[in-house]
Structures are given as C-alpha cells and as structure tokens.
Amino acid sequence: MKQTITCINCPIGCRMTVETNGDEIVNIDGASCKRGADYAKQEAVSPRRMVTAVVNVPSCQTPLSVKTESPIPKDRIFDCMRAIGNAELKTPIRMGEVVCENVCGTGVNVVSTRDLP
C-alpha cells in the first residue's frame, strides 16, 4: 500500500510517499532528513495522536480540561472523546488526576490538566 504523508517536523513540510506491506515498510520517498523518514514510518504503520478536550463538571462554571497521558491510536480518537464525555466527575479535581483509566482499552489514562476547586 502507498500513502502520502506530510512531514510536520519543520516548515518545509516534505511530502513523503511510504510503501508498506502490512506492518513492514517497503520504501520511503521524498524525505529530506532522518527525522522525517522516522516520522513517516511511524505515521504509515501506526499513527498516534494526543487527545485533549474539556468536560463540563456539574455545578462548575468552568469546564475541566483533560488530555491523554500519551498518544493513542488515531482511529480511536472519537471513541476516546466519547469516553471523556461520559466521565462522571466531582470537584475538587487536581491537575494530573486520572479522569478515565485505560481509555477505550488503549492502555492510556486520561488525566486532568488543571485544578478545579
């Protein structure tokens, strides 16, 4: 399979073509540095993203901002959003507190990114 990937490492934004066979990289074209090639490999085989969101907390004017502790598979982003939306929260919440454990079975926790007294 061939995929086109835009590099995000610098403003050049190289358009790289990655050829894969299952999880195996067959060929990378268009990368002008090693960092770019590494990024292309990762993106082609298993793209991951951090997810950040806010949740309204009952009786709180300001919503709580949250994030995944580390990137999760890109195709699970909306599942993750749904899980965050369903989280039942009560103040006070401290920054770093786990809001959803092992979100959608990704092995990654969703944590609070601010204090909400």
């Binding site: 806010v54 949740v55 309204n56 919503p63 909306f78 959003m81 749904r82 939306g85």
Partner: peptide
Amino acid sequence: NRIEDAFLEMDGKH
C-alpha cells in the same frame, strides 16, 4: 448548545 449535547448529536457519525 452545550458541548456535551453537541457531542451526543454527533454519535454515530464517526
């Protein structure tokens, strides 16, 4: 609407 309601409406779309 409030963000949680907007999100509920989206369910199924993705």
